[in-house]
Write a protein that binds this DNA or RNA. Structure first.
Length: 585
RNA sequence: GCUCCAGUAGCUCAGUGGAUAGAGCAACCGCCUUCUAAGCGGUCGGCCACAGGUUCGAAUCCUGUCUGGAGCGCCA
């Protein structure tokens, strides 16, 4: 099955050449979904854009295009409207045939990619010895969804968890570990997971207050970097404990990552410095080795340096990022590198990439993308905190969502007089709670800040996870009630589209590929949410107007197929958001 | 001081060059003897922050202003 819009584009390109000659070969036909359903399904705006170039009135251009346009297998005869819009209506027979093919295709008519790209998605990236908190929520959820979508399209994706597992903070952590938990170094599992936040706070407090502790910590950093065995053992211990805590969250969120932290690049840092030196970019300033940046100034208006090596010989995260960037291109052979971090790091990436480009490390074939997102805010519009003003632990946040989903469910069961097993209740509550958190985040344009509200995300009405899950459940209800295996219908099944709502649903189902290719380009998962929400709405409208099980043949089978396609598209689409479906709820 | 991001209905947000700017929530009015009403239909609601500019055409692109957020030399 070929993308309808791609086919139409080809036809328009041919028509443009046929009408106006080879000079117009490769002209974008500006073909887009119609701005309003009353104009049809698709429209081309190319005629207006060519008025100057061709020196003819747009309507005349549109007429010439339409005369040379061969789309009779796909569309009704095109019409020209307004200043020169060319409107297209898909033929019923074409839609019906496309739906039959979609029904027979395991990939719902999304063709496998011709040119998969080696892609790195760098996301989540929590810090060792700190628990994951609300600040990691967006990177983790958005990054996972982007990775899932690119994987589904056929790209070769490496999901990198760029953990904060190295740096000066380990001096105080190791020193504190040695002094406060001496057993931990000799006995397995002596350090409990939940202690990590407290542990970090204690270390930080001592570091801030105790001069001697500070000095010991400084020496510990040196020992760690020098490869001291005991220091490394302590460091490993902290990392292992943290991995376990992270994995608990990743399991709950159903997220898969490859752990490759900053420490991985340690051996590569001196080469970064050497190469920048050789490229003539390094300047020594106040004892630090820097690259002065184009287009960035400090508060005094002087050029801003990017510090590559500190005056004490240590390295910063910019150096690590440079090393990582080079490794990803040279060793991982990445062609597209996607960084999912908060918008506040935009400058940092621009700076690091500028240095990498000036050092000629980035081939033209490699695309670097920062996928920024806004901060999570409470309902008061301020930074999201607990009542006592602490950062919200991700575990607590997710538990709260699940527990609220559970309460809603139990209230509802009681109202309806339903009896369900404990297993059912806990499963539904978990899926609904986690889905709600994910969907609420993903459904917003990630670039703006995001106001976190349990009440809104768990609401049963509106653009929420429960609404979408319910649409899926309704379809499973039809299947159960009718005792029908919806997947049984083959490519030769009858499809008849008569009602308005059937037609609208059918057309929406067939545009799944368009939304996915848009996301492949701009990495905006909220487009997929919008698509799935509209799909659910259109299904509910269809469900409201069109009886399925009681319908006469051939409508009955046709409607069963439409329902099945909706369910499969919902399930696939939600899977790309990292959300599971339920059979009943 | 500089850089980046944002500003669209009462609220939360879609909409990055096309026709009369959309949705959800909230408010109000309807629809359950029929596949789960967690649904569907309707009403109300806009100076797209402001001012210029580019264009056949601007919420969308450019310039400036205002407001909010984030960041800006040895933390990540």
């Amino acid at each position: 099955m070929n993308s309808t819009i791609a086919q139409l584009k080809e036809r328009f390109e041919q028509a443009l050449v046929a009408a106006f000659g080879d000079a117009l070969a490769g002209t974008d036909p500006i073909l887009v979904p119609a701005s309003n359903p009353k104009f049809g399904d698709y429209q081309s705006n190319v005629a207006m854009s060519l008025t100057k170039r061709l020196g003819k009135p747009p309507r005349a251009i549109a007429e010439a295009i339409v005369q040379n346009l061969e789309v009779s297998d796909l569309c009704e005869p095109p019409t020209i409207a307004g200043p020169g819009f060319i409107n297209l209506n898909l033929k019923l027979t074409y839609l019906e045939q496309q739906l039959r093919q979609m029904q027979a295709d395991a990939r719902l008519g999304i063709p496998p990619l011709k040119q998969p790209k080696r892609t790195i998605v760098d996301f989540s990236s929590p810090n060792i010895a700190k628990e994951m908190h609300v600040g990691h929520l967006r990177s983790t959820i958005i990054g996972d969804s982007i990775a899932r979508i690119l994987e589904f399209l056929g790209h070769d994706v490496l999901r990198i968890n760029h953990l904060g597992d190295w740096g000066t903070q380990f001096g105080m952590l190791i020193t504190h570990l040695k002094q406060a938990y001496p057993d931990a170094l000799t006995t397995a599992n002596a350090l409990a997971l939940g202690d990590l936040t407290t542990f970090y706070k204690q270390a930080k407090q001592r570091f801030d207050e105790d001069e001697q502790f500070r000095e010991e910590s400084r020496l510990e950093v040196v020992a760690l970097q020098a490869g001291n065995e005991e220091s490394l053992r302590a460091w490993h211990l902290l990392c292992e404990q943290s991995f376990l805590a992270f994995q608990e969250i990743y399991d709950l969120l159903d997220i898969c990552v490859t752990n490759r932290g900053e420490s991985f690049y340690n051996p590569l840092l001196p080469a970064v410095v050497e190469d920048l030196e050789q490229a003539g970019l390094l300047v020594e300033d106040q004892g630090a080795k820097c690259v002065f940046l184009d287009g960035f100034t400090n508060k005094e208006g002087n050029p801003l340096p990017l510090i590559i090596q500190k005056s004490d010989g240590g390295y910063n995260y910019a150096t690590t990022d440079l090393a990582a960037l080079r490794y990803r291109i040279q060793q991982d052979h990445a062609e597209r590198i996607i960084y999912v971090t908060d918008a506040g790091q935009a400058n940092h990436f621009t700076q690091v990439w500028q240095v990498a480009r000036r050092a000629n490390w980035i081939p033209d074939s490699v695309e670097l993308v920062h996928v920024p997102f806004g901060v999570v805010q409470g309902e008061d519009g301020k930074k999201f905190k607990t009542r006592s003003g602490d950062t919200v632990r991700l575990k607590d946040l997710l538990d709260e969502a699940v527990s609220r989903a559970r309460t809603d469910l139990e209230t509802r069961l009681q109202e309806e007089g339903r009896q369900e097993s404990e297993e059912f209740k806990s499963h539904v509550a978990e899926v609904v709670g986690i889905s709600a958190v994910k969907y609420a985040d993903l459904s917003q344009n990630r670039t703006s800040n995001y106001i976190f509200s349990y009440d809104k995300m768990l609401s049963l009405q509106g653009n929420t996870a429960p609404y979408l899950l319910y649409a899926y459940v309704r379809i499973q209800g039809i299947s159960r009630k009718g005792g029908i295996d919806l997947s049984q219908f083959a490519i030769d099944c009858p499809i008849v589209l008569q009602e308005e709502t059937e037609l609208a649903l059918a057309k929406h189902l067939l545009s799944f590929d368009e939304v996915l290719s848009a996301i492949e380009e701009d990495l905006m998962p909220n487009r997929l949410c919008q698509y799935l929400f509209e799909l659910s709405q259109k299904f509910n409208q269809f469900y409201d107007r069109c009886p399925v099980l009681q319908a006469e043949e051939p409508q009955r089978t046709s409607r069963l197929v439409l329902s099945n396609l909706t369910a499969r598209t919902l399930k696939q689409g939600l899977a790309l958001l990292g959300i599971a479906v339920l059979e009943r709820m």
